[in-house]
Design a protein around this nucleic acid. Structure first.
Lengths: 186, 186
DNA sequence: TAGTGTGAACCGTTTCACAGCC
DNA sequence: GGCTGTGAAACGGTTCACACTA
């Protein structure tokens, strides 16, 4: 890879992220111990940000739920450097058997037994909505600290040390419609 | 269905949504023309909210991209009352042929030709990231006003009349890790 | 008395404005 | 001159406090 110390402006970065140059500068100012006063350069900046957030080595992730959505996560993350799925669970054993994966896979009720020894902090929950609550608490008691919940069932964090991101793909559509419809009211 | 004029408190509603009763009351106050001063009741309240947002009849949705993620959307929305997928597109013709669907399906390059006559305002984009930009502009010129973009490629709205919700399932994981890591720094 | 509706205070974020630096 | 870094103002959303009502 060639030397990528090419300059980037905060404004350009902002445009990639859908925000302003002002905000970018503020955020970078918080993250990076401010010594360099010069202009931003692509590679060193990226490295400093990655370091500030702890992105140097890939995240090890546990995936629960091997339905169609779980398979999608498995597939797309395969081509991704920043995180790797290293452990699989599902409630349906036949799904696990059908799998020709190099990634170890177990029935979901074995989470409490298997997870703790692996030191995995991050999980993706992609089961049916009905199984969300139960599997989430299994994960938390197994040591998971960050949960990406794709089930559509809204989960609340049991305490401050655990972060949950709830994503409900269906309701996003209604939100979109609602916001646009509402802004017309003016 | 039995009569559901049962009372609900703002606090209870808030707990379902991960917010406070105060906020719920504020929001309801904005949405509903405030005449009833009494306590909230489940069904009438739900109906008034649905009406305020225009949720009475199901959203008609167009789905672009029939990969694994698109198939997931197709599958889950099938069991959902609030929105229905009524039109499909994909760039790969063999995917379209393999489909035994009652929903009409066309190659993506025919969007500009087919979409306008259908009066569809809402679309889900679930193609490869590389095809996001091109298909999005096809959709917009075909009359789409709300776009749920699941490709992972960040799209910006061409103007105020169009709303885009970008969801990047992969990067959500990094965000989660970053926020938790950061709050430790205190 | 429990719960709503709403001004007023509060707080985190974004934008503005501008001084300093390359 | 263009860009960064950062106080100060502006903004939007949340919380507080409390009068009002069923």
């Amino acid at each position: 890879m060639k030397d990528e110390n090419i300059p980037v402006t905060s404004e350009t970065l902002g445009s990639y992220l859908g925000t302003s140059g002002d905000s970018i500068r503020r955020d970078i100012g918080c993250l990076i111990p401010k010594e360099g006063k010069g202009h931003y350069e692509k590679r060193p900046l990226a490295e400093e940000i990655a370091q500030a957030f702890g992105f140097e080595e890939p995240l090890k992730i546990c995936l629960v739920g091997l339905g169609i959505l779980g398979q999608y996560m498995l597939q797309t993350m395969d081509q991704w450097d920043h995180a790797k799925i290293v452990l699989l669970f599902d409630t349906k054993i036949n799904r696990l058997e059908r799998l020709d994966q190099s990634i170890p896979a177990f029935p979901a009720w074995e989470i409490p037994e298997i997870l703790p020894s692996r030191g995995i902090k991050t999980a993706v929950l992609a089961t049916e909505a009905e199984e969300a609550e139960k599997n989430a608490s299994r994960l938390f008691s197994g040591g998971v600290k960050y949960l990406l919940n794709l089930t559509g069932y809204y989960l609340r964090s049991p305490h401050g040390g655990i972060r949950i991101k709830n994503i409900n793909l269906l309701s996003e559509l209604l939100c979109l419609k609602a916001t646009l419809q509402n802004q017309r009211k003016e």
